[in-house]
């Protein structure tokens, strides 16, 4: 596999290092980090900087605390859930969705199916999306859209995206999105939409706006 060429903005990694991202944003970041050694390197620097600025001041510990803690060292730990295995999905997604096979795909529009992730608590629509090989899906972004490609890929006006690539589309800098799914395989991606994309094109119109809830 080639290394990802589209990365997360550094301000996302800075916010992640400080614990400032939402859970849904963390899923996107952790998924990209699983697949991108370069961004892990950047995060390592951000975390060292965060630790060095945040853990400067000391607060006195309760004198009774150490004995209480030492007494707990042999406490049995709740067993970790069994490690899931999937040929496509990394753990940050898989732990929420379960295996790719058997997902309850919902039809979202021509060539597009999706599954909402049930767990992250922010109330934002974090979705696994499956787009049909060869599909063309022009749309506009009214809100911030981020995600990671997990299988297949696409071309658009911003470049070529493949497994591991992070996609961060802001409405001011990426208003349109002329997404052309590669012909060789269906494309799977995890996508966080901070508002719904709006389908563009005369062929679609208002009906498609209802259909294309991506």
């Amino acid at each position: 596999m080639t290394a990802p060429t589209h990365h997360l903005p550094e301000d996302w990694l800075i916010a992640y290092a400080g614990g400032g991202l939402t859970e849904a944003q963390c899923v996107v970041v952790a998924t990209h980090l699983t697949l991108c050694p370069a961004c892990r390197q950047t995060l390592a620097i951000a975390e060292e900087a965060a630790a060095s600025t945040l853990m400067r001041a000391e607060a006195p510990l309760d004198p009774a605390g150490l004995d209480a803690l030492m007494a707990r060292l042999d406490e049995p730990e709740a067993p970790e859930p069994p490690a899931p295995v999937d040929a496509v999905l990394p753990w940050p997604v898989l732990r929420f969705t379960g295996p790719l096979a058997g997902q309850p795909w919902k039809w979202l529009g021509p060539g597009v199916h999706g599954v909402d992730l049930p767990q992250p608590t922010d109330g934002l629509p974090l979705r696994l999306i499956r787009m049909r090989a060869g599909a063309r899906m022009p749309h506009r972004h009214e809100g911030f859209e981020s995600g990671v490609v997990l299988a297949g890929g696409w071309d658009d006006e911003y470049g070529t995206y493949r497994r591991g690539d992070a996609t961060v589309y802001a409405p001011d800098t990426h208003p349109t999105h002329d997404q052309r799914i590669h012909d060789d395989a269906d494309c799977i991606a995890i996508v966080l939409n901070e508002s719904r994309a709006v389908v563009e094109g005369r062929l679609f119109g208002p009906l498609a706006r209802l259909l294309f809830r991506i």
């Binding site: 596999m1 963390c26 952790a30 050694p37 999937d86 999905l89």
Partner: peptide, 17 residues
């Protein structure tokens, strides 16, 4: 809420070059 993290034990984890 949780800080979801990448995990080296994940079979999909791409190791450092």
């Amino acid at each position: 809420r949780r800080v979801v993290e990448a995990d080296q034990r994940d079979p999909q984890f791409v190791p450092d070059p």
